[in-house]
Simulated assay, not measured.
Amino acid sequence: MDAPVPIPVAMMAGFMILGAILSMGKCSFLIAGYSMMNRGQKKQYDEQALCRFMGKIMYCLAFAMLLWLSSIILQNSVLLSASLYFLVGSIAFAVIYAGAGSRFKK
């Protein structure tokens, strides 16, 4: 194996842990942008729904890391490309979905 395996394993574990914590509606201070708002602005948003959404995104990113790990083990460049597309696509979807409109406002 040419590439280091512990990097995607550690990233996948981190995303899984963050996904589990955020899916429970906890640790909203980890969400960039939301943590920078003042209390008045935070009251306008549904914190539980935002945390659950970000938890699901963390699970998607963990899946992308699993594809990356599979590409390293199997030495398959197609899986690496798929994992990178899925990673970038998930992040782009999250930014557009959460930022556009008033989806998480009360």
Rank of each mutant, 00 (worst) to 15 (best):
L87Q: 12
I17H: 02
V95P: 08
V9Y: 01
A98N: 04
G89F: 11
I96C: 12
W68E: 06
C60D: 04
G40I: 05
S35C: 13
R39T: 11
R39Q: 14
P4C: 00
M36G: 01
N76V: 03
Q44S: 12
L22C: 01
G25E: 03
K42L: 07
M24A: 12
K106L: 09
S83R: 09
I31S: 09
L87V: 10
P8F: 03
A100V: 15
M65C: 14
Y34C: 10
A20P: 00
V9I: 15
R52F: 00
Y59L: 10
L61I: 12
I21F: 06
A32L: 09
I91A: 10
A82K: 03
A10S: 04
F15K: 00
L61K: 05
K42P: 09
K105H: 12
S71V: 06
M24S: 14
C60N: 09
Y85L: 15
I17F: 12
Y34R: 11
A13K: 01
F63G: 12
P6Y: 05
Q75H: 06
A62W: 06
A98I: 07
Q75Y: 00
L66A: 15
W68N: 12
Y85W: 15
A62F: 04
S81C: 06
L22I: 04
Y59T: 05
E47H: 11
S71A: 15
A3Q: 06
G101Q: 11
G19R: 02
A49R: 14
L87N: 13
F15Y: 11
S81E: 07
L69V: 10
S28K: 09
R52G: 00
P4L: 11
M12C: 10
I96A: 14
I7Y: 01
L69R: 07
L87E: 10
Q44I: 10
L84M: 14
M54N: 13
G101F: 10
S81P: 00
Y34E: 06
Q75D: 08
I57D: 00
F93D: 01
K106H: 13
V9T: 04
Q48S: 12
S23C: 00
I21V: 15
N76A: 05
R103Y: 08
M24F: 09
F104M: 09
M12H: 02
P6F: 05
I31W: 07
Q48E: 13
S81Q: 11
M11W: 02
V9Q: 01
A92D: 04
I91Q: 09
A98Y: 02
D2M: 08
A92E: 03
M24H: 02
F63D: 00
A10Q: 00
M24Y: 02
F29M: 10
M12Y: 02
I73H: 03
L50T: 03
F93L: 09
P4Q: 04
F104H: 08
A94M: 10
L74V: 03
K56W: 04
G19V: 03
E47A: 13
I7E: 01
Q41A: 13
Y45L: 15
Y45N: 08
L74R: 10
A64C: 13
I31T: 07
F93I: 08
R52C: 06
Q44A: 13
P4D: 05
I72V: 12
V9P: 03
A20E: 02
A64G: 15
G25I: 05
Y34N: 08
C60V: 11
G101I: 08
I73A: 04
W68K: 13
S71D: 06
Y59C: 02
F63T: 12
I31M: 10
N76R: 05
